[in-house]
Design a protein around this nucleic acid. Structure first.
Lengths: 172, 172
DNA sequence: CTCAACATGTAACTCGTTACATGATTGA
DNA sequence: TCAATCATGTAACGAGTTACATGTTGAG
């Protein structure tokens, strides 16, 4: 899975493992995450398989810049075209909501309030990213569309939390 | 992680592993999923640790009904009270959206249209579950609140897809 | 000079998935 | 009787996280 994400990011422009790791914390991070300990070995594997290539000499601090190869480009495209996305959800915070009744009322409220704060924080980060620059390239336009999912889901989350707090108040 | 979900479900009422597996496909499935091959070993571990207990004799077909123990109840409560939910998102379909520009226009549209269909399907399933019975017990009320997250996120997803299709049309 | 950020890696472990394996019961 | 569903389990594998480990460069 990670390999395709890396190839997709490198399809836009060459990057180092370090840069890629940052991308997973920022923009793409709203949809997927990966630590450096997973990224570096994967980059080496991708390079072994010829899907990416390191630019000649490592830069300062041993920095290696990778660019995607023709085979790599084919591989991402094939992934996008031939495979169905896995729609399995894994949302711990939402799962806990099912067990709200096991908490005492104050803890339950606190849980939902924490969700509200988290959603609002996500929202403002994403808004800032979206406002940062207006998309010019096709890649940036796609990125903007991807960002919008996060934006709308965070908004839905925040609205849900407000609604949930009202319901909790009704049943005291 | 799974252990807490199992304890939470068993806190409501005794169930067999088979029943628990079904719950992860239905109601709770909108937030977490688990296959039987993960559930059965975990139930045995939980029983070893005294957090749940199997009712005396196995029923027909070797069915074992588990109920939560006092220690088990304490364990879920402690988990809910003492630990922060992991908010890491892992959304493959959304990730692919960032790479829309790598697909040819028809495939890109098809991807978003598939998202729309998936969201609408999720929506109607969740609506049916929500409409099935009005919550009476505290557990059912919590469940309803949990369901609402799924409902609102699915709606956001569907709305996003419609918006994205418009944007794709603009940039042909 | 020193601290933060840059930059890459490995190893052990945990969690979850897929495939294999078996058998009982019930309704058509 | 036969197929679907009920019901439980194991083993191998894959993906991701945490912790360990190391060294460089640039800014103040």
């Amino acid at each position: 899975m990670l390999r395709h994400a890396l190839l997709g990011l490198l399809a836009d422009r060459p990057m180092s493992g370090y840069e890629l790791a940052q991308r997973f914390e920022a923009a793409v991070g709203a949809t997927w995450s990966a630590g450096h300990s997973q990224i570096y070995p994967e980059l080496n594997r991708l390079a072994d398989e010829g899907l990416i290539a390191a630019d000649g000499e490592p830069g300062p601090r041993g920095r290696k810049t990778y660019r995607i190869t023709g085979d790599g480009r084919d591989a991402v495209r094939e992934w996008l075209r031939e495979t169905e996305p896995d729609r399995t959800v894994r949302d711990e915070a939402a799962l806990r909501t099912f067990f709200l009744w096991l908490m005492d009322p104050d803890d339950a409220r606190a849980h939902v309030e924490a969700e509200l704060r988290a959603a609002e924080e996500a929202l403002s980060t994403l808004r800032a990213t979206a406002a940062a620059r207006r998309p010019a390239t096709p890649a940036e336009r796609s990125q903007r569309i991807g960002l919008e999912i996060g934006l709308r889901e965070a908004q839905a989350r925040a609205d849900w939390a407000v609604w949930a707090l009202e319901r909790l108040s009704e049943h005291r």
